[in-house]
Design a protein around this nucleic acid. Structure first.
Lengths: 219, 219
DNA sequence: GACCATAGGCGTACGGCGTACACTTGTCAA
DNA sequence: TTGACAAGTGTACGCCGTACGCCTATGGTC
């Protein structure tokens, strides 16, 4: 028979490496994400990766910029408020899909998608009439809120309406002295009842901020 | 002579380990923070640490709870707004001192200082008259903003009034296609002039949020 | 079709990490 | 003085990122 290379493996490429890297980080988390594990996932020896990325750091840079690329840019058509709102919602969604990226969005060498995103966002605010300094403030509050919310959402494990209650209860149970913390107890007991939807929660705070900003806009 | 042990080294203790660990993480950063480096700092062999902490994870838990302990609890005396404001400012300050802790405040097994902080904060909101669900929302926005701001502050390197401009310029310079991103260029050029104080920036957004919350309070 | 430069993938090896396990040494109560 | 128990040590293992040199498959040229 001598079937020639029954598995003529598709060649590696930077794009394939990045894609597999994101998939691995998504499902295994950042701690379990190693060059060696990634190589295995790709059916290749660890050092093969280094023909396509300079090192792990540069790989992470590339991964983060892909996440930035998944974020909806503020469209010039819509009014500033809904443009900002859509961008914020889309950012949180991307960060929910890629929890590993949350702490890295602004800490690495910015890629093209990052720059485009920041430029477009600042542009939308300026064109909405915010003076430079107010635009800086407005940008700062929004991004701090978005990143912080994503961080909390990931860390507190409030994923589904009532896993939130479960998580709260777990935290309360972790310490047995429940009666020492009456308000934590209230959270653990009442949160499951009132229900908790992270999207609703996110948008509640987002709208509070956007309302505040709107009242500062000239005209 | 035979001076007995000229350096009768003070015994190790959990407290000494934690203190040295925080000092090391503060000055060397989280990546350079290793059990081996910490041991060396304490003039001891790595495995000696394990007589005082279970493992690195549990050590980090302890470090984070010490950071929580440095945060001012909302006092029952003041009105809710200034109590929340002081807590927020104090949290940001603690996180600025201990940048390594930012991503870990809510991700680890909560220690006593953590629980006390959360309970007291939720309590202050409830006693201010916020209904349960609104109090949850109010808590969520504030903490998301605080943690997110601390994260940005650390990652963007906007430490001093004009290192902010320098950092912005550095980011703009990192890519040479400056004219492709006019609004980033504006930031790089104008930010040094208008000055940038992270405390002012933080409190601007904080007040925006607190004002929004105040308008929702019953009475 | 034959040849060869080059890019892609491999194997080995090194120093650093967290920490298991068995040991020696120091300390303090009896 | 003694002996038990706590504190500190030494060695070793399996991970990690990645430098370096080798082999091999690929595709352009004749």
């Amino acid at each position: 028979m001598t079937e020639q290379k029954e598995t003529t493996r598709t060649r590696l490429s930077r794009a394939r490496v990045l894609e597999a890297a994101i998939a691995l980080a998504d499902e295994a988390g950042l701690e379990a994400f190693s060059m060696r594990a990634l190589a295995q996932e790709l059916g290749v020896v660890p050092m093969a990766l280094y023909k396509h990325v300079a090192n792990k750091d540069e790989l992470l840079d590339g991964m983060v910029d892909i996440v930035f690329g998944e974020i909806e840019l503020p469209s010039g058509d819509a009014d500033w408020r809904s443009a900002m709102r859509r961008r914020a919602v889309s950012t949180r969604e991307a960060l929910t899909r890629h929890g590993w990226a949350i702490g890295m969005m602004e800490s690495r060498r910015p890629g093209p998608a990052n720059l485009r995103n920041h430029d477009a966002t600042m542009g939308a605010l300026r064109e909405a009439g915010f003076p430079f300094e107010v635009a800086i403030h407005a940008y700062s509050v929004q991004d701090a809120y978005i990143y912080g919310f994503a961080l909390q959402e990931r860390d507190l494990g409030f994923e589904t309406p009532d896993s939130a209650g479960a998580a709260a209860r777990r935290r309360a149970d972790a310490i047995d002295a429940r009666e020492e913390y009456p308000h934590l107890l209230e959270i653990a007991t009442r949160l499951p009842d009132v229900g908790y939807d992270p999207s609703v929660e996110f948008e509640w705070g987002l709208d509070l901020i956007l309302d505040g900003l709107d009242s500062l806009r000239p005209d």
